[in-house]
Computed example of a mutant assay.
Amino acid sequence: MKSLSVLELSKLYNINRQTIYNNINKGILSKNSDNKIDFSEAIRVFGEPVKKVDVKESVKIDSLNSAEFLLLRQQVDMLKNQLSDAKDRESFYHNQIETMQRLLEAPRPYTTSFIDPEKTQSEPILDENNEVIAKPPKEPEVVENSRISIPEHIEPEPEKRGFWSRFFLPNG
């Protein structure tokens, strides 16, 4: 709503400025933080003004509001552009993810086979025509690292002992 100074209010209602100040001091009329009186507050106290408010004055007073309005409009437009850019990026990355998932091979399910403990696979499995279907697996060979040689005269490292075992268990 429109805010008026004491001088503008006195001219609008054709009353003395001192009357307005007295009403403010008595608490009948209140001022804003910018020391102006709200037009609706003036109507509440003094009633409708005798002469109409000029449209040109309201444009001058609202010019600050219109500048703020333009600034806010620009910010809203900028945020809309940023939102549309973010949505475009999101759809691009979503398409990239789908493409990568199609390119990756689906993992094969883990198949378990029953192994009869009595029958070990030391013999190849044959079909009806006596053709080899599966060969027995080879035993893994244990290969020692030939580069690192451990001398035989070195004693094995003693077992690590905890803090309390040092006090309560005998030395070993």
Rank of each mutant, 00 (worst) to 15 (best):
I115M: 04
I115K: 06
D116V: 06
D116N: 14
P117G: 01
K119C: 05
K119R: 12
K119Q: 11
T120V: 06
Q121N: 14
Q121G: 13
S122H: 08
S122I: 12
S122K: 09
S122V: 10
I125F: 04
I125C: 08
L126K: 00
E128F: 07
E128W: 03
E128Q: 06
N129G: 02
N129Y: 10
N129M: 07
N130S: 14
N130V: 05
N130I: 05
E131T: 04
E131K: 10
E131V: 06
E131G: 01
E131M: 06
V132K: 08
V132T: 15
I133F: 01
I133D: 05
A134I: 12
A134Y: 14
K135W: 15
K135V: 13
K135A: 03
K135S: 10
K135F: 12
P136E: 14
P136V: 12
P136A: 09
P136M: 04
P137C: 03
P137E: 09
P137N: 13
P137T: 02
P137I: 11
P137Q: 10
P140K: 15
P140R: 15
P140S: 12
P140A: 13
V142C: 04
V142Q: 08
V143C: 06
E144G: 04
E144S: 08
E144P: 00
E144A: 10
S146D: 06
S146A: 12
S146I: 07
S146H: 04
